[in-house]
Amino acid sequence: MNTLLLRSAQENDTKDKYQESFRETDVDCVSVSPIGFEFINLETLYAHISHPEDHSGLIFSSPRTVQSVALCLKKHDENNEWDARLRDEWNKLPAFSVGTSTGGEVRKLGLHPVGEDSGNAENLCRIILEAVKSGSKPLLYPCGTMRREVIPKTLQKEELPVTYRVVSSAYMITFPSFRTRTTSSMNIKKRRGPRSEPWGTPMERERSFDIVCLIETCCFLFVR
Rank of each mutant, 00 (worst) to 15 (best):
A9H: 13
Q10V: 15
K15C: 13
Q19K: 12
S21P: 09
T25N: 14
V32S: 00
S33V: 01
I35D: 07
I35R: 09
E38V: 10
E38P: 00
I40D: 00
E43L: 09
E43C: 06
L45R: 01
Y46D: 05
H48C: 02
I49T: 06
S50W: 02
P52M: 00
P52Y: 01
P52A: 02
E53A: 08
E53N: 08
H55F: 06
H55C: 01
S56L: 04
I59Q: 08
P63H: 10
T65E: 04
T65G: 05
Q67I: 15
Q67F: 13
K74M: 14
E78P: 00
N80W: 00
N80S: 08
R85F: 07
D88E: 11
E89S: 10
V98H: 01
T102F: 03
T102M: 04
G103I: 12
V106R: 07
L109P: 02
L111G: 01
L111S: 00
L111I: 04
P113V: 12
G115N: 05
R126Y: 09
I128M: 07
L129Q: 07
L129Y: 07
A131K: 11
K133S: 11
G135Q: 04
P138S: 07
C143D: 03
T145Q: 06
M146S: 10
M146F: 04
E149H: 09
P152D: 14
L155H: 09
L155F: 11
E158V: 12
E159A: 15
T163V: 03
Y164G: 13
S168M: 14
S169N: 15
I173E: 03
F175L: 13
F178P: 01
R179Y: 15
R179H: 07
R179G: 09
T182Y: 05
T182G: 01
T183I: 15
S184L: 15
S185H: 05
K189I: 14
R191P: 15
P194D: 11
S196Y: 14
E197M: 15
P198N: 06
P198K: 02
P198R: 04
M203L: 11
M203R: 12
R205N: 13
F209W: 04
V212W: 15
C219V: 13
C219L: 11
C219E: 11
C219Y: 10
L221P: 00
